[in-house]
Design a protein around this nucleic acid. Structure first.
Length: 734
DNA sequence: AGCACGCCGACT
DNA sequence: GTCGGCGTGCTC
């Protein structure tokens, strides 16, 4: 027992053997270890302990130090890493180290703060006497804090921290001034055996009740449940009931959500429902230490609910009882670089191994998931109507802009509807999936358009900043006054983006309060949360925005959704474009009329009879999904085949294509495997790199995997000057 | 991936 | 004469 095999963050598909430090046993498998490597030293994870090594003894170095600061990674997690390494054909060391929070990847030991201190801050008599003007006006955090304290007398740590990053400092000053006193709160005993659900629980709809009755008897076994519920049908309430059940059994629940935007919302709901229950929130908005702390709490079994984005699927969870993947169709579950894993698929595998249920929730399931459900590999639960008493699904109308002319992007019926909405104090939403002022800068004389020189894309006009921007690489350019091609002055923005629509709305409705919501307007930290608050508190009449608005937010007073130009992706070359467009439109449409008021959705299109819009009008996901599945079947697309992409990047497209051609010859297409011709990627140039890919597919996942395994060893030995290649399993983008 | 070693062009 | 280009090969 003197050799340890260590996973290191290196693009090599091997473990590295080291002489173990004294006293190392099999108990240390899963511990982090510090080792010499090349001329430096680095941190890794002990994957195996062995008695001998095949490496010649003179090469083997002595490992420096085994870290026992946190418990070793449990065997199930190491298995999960091995599975990912094999399935995604990615080096094990990179998989393992990618799964650890950054703070634990470093060579610094991590000191667990035992019993993370929770404090209450109570306003003293002295503090009560302080006038708000005693705090300088520029100390916004200080003022907010004092106002809050005067309102409620006391505040908890966690709540205070939400005001601003400065809060803890300010609070220290308050304590020093004896305005507040600090009272330690005893942390809840672990595990909280009975969740204190104090408030009256909402009455369940029949569909919700049926769903819960179906899952509850099978809580102890693996099943993949698809919870297919229209927007507003109350999926969250089902999650809450199931979690509550697990809390009573002292088991942990892992909840995966798409992106950080939704995390605070769901976190607030969970905390309100289960006060006193330890919830670890793992998202990219945390600093490395916070992230590691949440992770360790999960690993120690202290955190009972773990809420996080895709990376959270790799959290060690000793008492895991269920996994929930909310908005399972969301693309952000798939990592698009490095280890290209799908957190949703990894979660299903993890649940299967652990013998626990997994619930995939969506109003618009991915076709892969839906297919699994209708073929009974997954168990399907439906919530066909909205949960709130008086809420029904919005009416959807198409406006044929082939027949009715638009002005500044708006057709007369949309303008009228917006007017009516404004007059009756209802909020409206204008959806246009394009940031910036206009997508194109065009010379009317010669047809020249501004393009990015690093990407195969057009530059987008950002009028306010007087800049042209590439939305793919971030490149910025000034605004030319003449056409660089023909010298003509007649160059102008063409088409509509959110900024232009916002400007048009401001002209049309000068008295309306208009908010633009896109990546540009929500870039700054907390600005999205602020806008959301403004919307909820009715300080906004009209919202203009991109797909950010489509995602899971509840706008109670919103009654009109206008969708401006969705046609572009109807006839796209990407076979998933229709599925995505439909999901997106269904999601935005679902923002309308979620409580009380009847919602209305207006779609401006040149193809009002297209089946996609017909399905949308009838809120009929199933018919369209089945139709799209039929198309996929005849065209031999997923989910009827399994795909893998060999991607190659090179400075010149010919180099990338030549490499792929070589790779294709090596493949010697075995039985049941289709190897296609190398082709340039959709975005043929990105950030100065030319990109191409080679598609491989098979009806048998197993056959495809076997093939990929042997192919990859050959690829490793292929000359690849100037070419960077990766395998992308179950690719979503081409 | 880094980072070495190694073999050929323009510079103080 | 060297400094440095990046092609090739190794890391326990």
């Amino acid at each position: 027992m003197s050799i340890i095999r260590v996973a290191l963050d290196k693009p090599l598909n091997i473990l590295f053997d080291y002489l173990a430090p004294a006293g190392v046993t099999k108990q240390d498998i899963g511990c982090r270890v510090f080792v010499p490597f090349g001329k430096g030293r680095m941190a890794g994870v002990i994957m195996e302990v062995a008695s001998h090594s095949d490496i010649s003894p003179d090469k083997i170095k002595q490992a420096d130090q085994v870290f026992r600061d946190v418990p070793p990674l449990p065997p199930e997690l190491l298995d999960l890493f091995r599975f990912c390494s094999e399935y995604y054909h990615h080096p094990l060391g990179e998989v393992v180290m990618n799964g650890l929070p950054a703070r634990l990847r470093s060579s610094q030991p991590f000191f667990i703060r035992t019993a993370p201190a929770i404090f209450q801050y109570r306003l003293t008599a002295k503090g009560r006497a302080v006038d708000i003007s005693a705090i300088p006006g520029r100390s916004i955090a200080g003022r907010k804090l004092l106002v809050k304290l005067k309102e409620s007398g006391m505040i908890e740590d966690g709540e205070a921290k939400q005001f601003s990053r400065r809060t803890s400092e300010v609070m220290k000053e308050f304590v020093a001034l004896q305005w507040v006193e600090e009272i330690p709160v005893a942390p809840p005993v672990v595990p909280a055996s009975s969740p204190q659900e104090t408030q009256a629980l909402p009455v369940l709809t029949t569909a919700q009740k049926n769903a819960i009755d179906a899952i509850v008897p099978k809580m102890g076994e693996f099943n993949t449940w698809l919870l297919h519920g229209v927007t507003g049908s109350g999926k969250t309430e089902i999650y809450l009931r199931l979690i509550s059940l697990l809390l009573r059994q002292a088991r942990q629940t892992l909840v995966l959500v798409p992106e950080i935007n939704l995390t605070p919302q769901l976190e607030a709901i969970f905390r309100a429902r289960f006060p006193g229950v330890r919830l670890a929130s793992l998202h990219s908005g945390l600093n490395p230490t916070e992230r590691a702390e949440g992770w360790v709490q999960a690993q120690l079994g202290e955190a009972e609910i773990i809420l996080g984005t895709r990376l959270a699927v790799f959290t060690p969870l000793p008492r895991l009882g269920m996994i929930i993947v909310d908005e399972e169709h969301d693309l952000s579950f798939k990592q698009q670089e490095g280890l290209r894993y799908s957190a949703r698929d990894v979660a299903v595998f993890r649940a299967k191994r652990a013998g626990i249920p997994i619930v995939l929730g969506s109003a618009t399931p991915s076709l892969e998931t839906y297919y699994n459900a209708i073929t009974r590999r997954y168990l399907l639960l439906r919530l066909p109507s909205r949960a709130a008493d008086n809420a029904s699904l919005p009416t959807v109308h198409c406006i044929d802009i082939g027949k009715i002319k638009t002005q500044e992007g708006f057709s007369p019926p949309v303008i009228t509807a917006l007017e009516k909405c404004l007059a009756s104090n209802q909020q409206s939403l204008v959806f246009i999936n394009r940031r910036g002022y206009a997508p194109i800068l065009l010379c009317r004389a010669c047809g020249w358009t501004a393009v990015c020189h690093r990407c195969a894309s057009r530059l987008v006009v950002h009028l306010r900043e007087k800049k042209l921007r590439c939305h793919h690489c971030g490149h910025q350019a000034g605004f030319p006054s003449l056409c660089p091609e023909c010298g003509n002055q007649d160059i102008a923005p063409f088409g509509h983006g959110t900024q232009r629509i916002e400007a048009a709305l401001t002209r049309l409705f000068p008295h309306a309060r208009i908010a633009r919501i896109d990546r540009d307007s929500t870039r700054r930290k907390n600005s999205w949360q602020r806008i959301l608050k403004d919307i909820r508190e009715q300080r906004v009449d009209m919202l203009v925005g991109t797909q950010i608005l489509a995602k899971g937010h509840d706008f109670p007073n919103l009654s009109l959704v206008s969708i401006l130009n969705p046609d572009a992706s109807l006839f796209s070359t990407d076979f998933r474009a229709s599925e995505r467009l439909f999901a997106q439109l269904m999601q935005v449409a679902g923002r309308a009329g979620r409580s009380g008021t009847l919602g209305e959705v207006l779609i401006q299109t040149e193809f009002p009879d297209h089946p996609l819009y017909r399905a949308l009008r009838q809120h009929d996901y199933d018919t369209l999904a089945r139709m799209l599945l039929e198309e996929r079947k005849t065209a031999r697309f997923p989910p009827f085949v399994h795909q893998a992409l060999l991607r190659a990047d090179a400075p010149a497209i010919a180099t990338a294509l030549a490499f792929l051609a070589n790779a294709a010859t090596m493949a010697k297409a075995p039985h049941q495997i289709e190897v296609f011709d190398p082709v340039p990627a959709q975005m043929a140039r990105l950030k100065g790199m030319e990109r191409a890919y080679l598609l491989v597919q098979s009806r048998s996942r197993k056959k495809l995997q076997e093939f990929l395994g042997s192919w990859r060893t050959k690829l490793d030995s292929l000359p690849s000057h100037k070419v960077r290649w990766t395998l992308d399993i179950d690719p979503l983008e081409f």
